[in-house]
Design a protein around this nucleic acid. Structure first.
Length: 173
DNA sequence: ACGATGATGAAC
DNA sequence: TTCATCATCGTA
């Protein structure tokens, strides 16, 4: 029984949402075709103090959606070629989001967005059927089958924030 | 190990 | 207006 996840799910700390997203299903509908993917890896970007987060230096044009209400999409462009998919979490004015890093069958946040035709057009949109991108509950995963590690590619965030165990991934069998 | 490739934000 | 940097990936 899958249920579309709504605001109540995402309106919590990014760390909790990230943990709970493991095992959920990312759904993409384009040109009349619906595909479903198991979410296997995510990262939390938690609050204004998180030096790894785009929001750590205050609100800008790019990151302002992170300060918005939960359930909105933050898509941004990096390295001159890659799109990254994030879901905004927590209450309005508290900047936080979860980066979807991997889904079953793919590897890496940029390959994921490429495979699902996710680009900047979806930035600042609300998750849902209207835009053809939403998330459904999946199998419940026990915490002991979820691995926690530091986040990837955030060495610039300093000794404290680069080491936070904000990356969650489904343990291999 | 490194280059691709362009937006972003901070400095000047 | 310039410049270093970047929540990455493919090739070597």
């Amino acid at each position: 029984m899958s249920v579309m996840l709504g605001k109540s799910f995402f309106n919590r700390s990014a760390v909790k949402v990230a943990h709970d997203l493991i095992g959920c299903v990312l759904v993409r509908r384009v040109r009349g075709r619906t595909r479903r993917f198991l979410i296997t890896e995510v990262e939390a970007y938690e609050g204004p103090k998180d030096l790894a987060s785009h929001a750590s230096r205050g609100k800008t044009k790019r990151n302002e959606i992170m300060f918005g209400p939960a359930g909105y999409i933050y898509v941004y462009f990096v390295y001159g070629m890659h799109w990254m998919l994030n879901i905004v979490t927590g209450k309005k004015d508290y900047p936080a989001a979860v980066l979807i890093r991997d889904i079953e069958g793919y590897s890496g946040p940029a390959r994921l967005t490429k495979a699902l035709s996710i680009t900047g057009e979806l930035n600042c949109k609300l998750l849902g059927k209207k835009i053809g991108l939403w998330i459904e509950s999946g199998m419940s995963i026990s915490s002991k089958n979820i691995l926690r590690t530091p986040r990837i590619g955030v060495a610039y965030a300093g000794p404290v924030w680069s080491k936070k165990l904000y990356r969650f991934l489904l343990k291999e069998k």
